[in-house]
Amino acid sequence: MSTGAGAASGTGTGRGGGTGTGTSGGSRERILARIRAAVADAPDAPEAARDYLETHTPDERVIDLLAENLADYRALVHRTDSEGLPTLIARLLAERGARTVLVPPLLPAFWLSALSSVGTDLIRVEDDPTATARELDVVDSVITGCALAIAETGTLVLDAAPDQGRRRITLVPDHHICVVRTADQVVGSVPQAMPLLDPTRPLTWISGPSATSDIELDRVEGVHGPRTLEVILLTE
């Protein structure tokens, strides 16, 4: 199809310590030739029909279902309006005992406008692209927005927009507060989410706090990601 892409692969980088123009290039052609031979006589296989449901959830149920499914996987769910948001955030940080809070580059200013009301020693840490993982590891909490949320699966999707920041800032701290605007950021189902997401951005789908099923196939919350996930459902 395109020999141009082939020429770029494995050879056009100038790094990688000579991973083998010869071997990699030769293997590319060999693998593609083997595939063509393998399926030469195979029956036609048309593209799949998308006759499954676009959603399983009526619109009026979407916000409540999101809250239920988030809670079912042990996220702590709060609801408030714009007026109540600053004090709710301040209260959650105070209850957590956070001394430092990490913020992405462009958080709406009013979200953090009540921090001073709960104590003067809470330090706001701006994400610095040069900050090392070790520096992030000493921060107590992080606050972000999200790209969207999916009710049926209890999922928040982050796309590293300026109100969410780099992927690592919602990973290394142990406490994540995520604000979801219910008016325009919640969809019912996964198929409804896909056209709204931009795959050229790095995407992180979060469904509850870090967990594992590796000990006797039983779900236990809290391994490497934030062990406490708080979700604020923000109404107008």
Binding site: A160, R168, P199, L203, W205, I206, S207, G225
Partner: peptide, 19 residues
């Protein structure tokens, strides 16, 4: 047996200053 696993990561090549 979950509606969704806790984390799914999607990346496309490299992303400036992120990852």
């Amino acid at each position: 047996a979950e509606r969704m696993n806790p984390y799914t990561s999607m990346w496309t090549g490299t992303h400036d200053a992120d990852g």
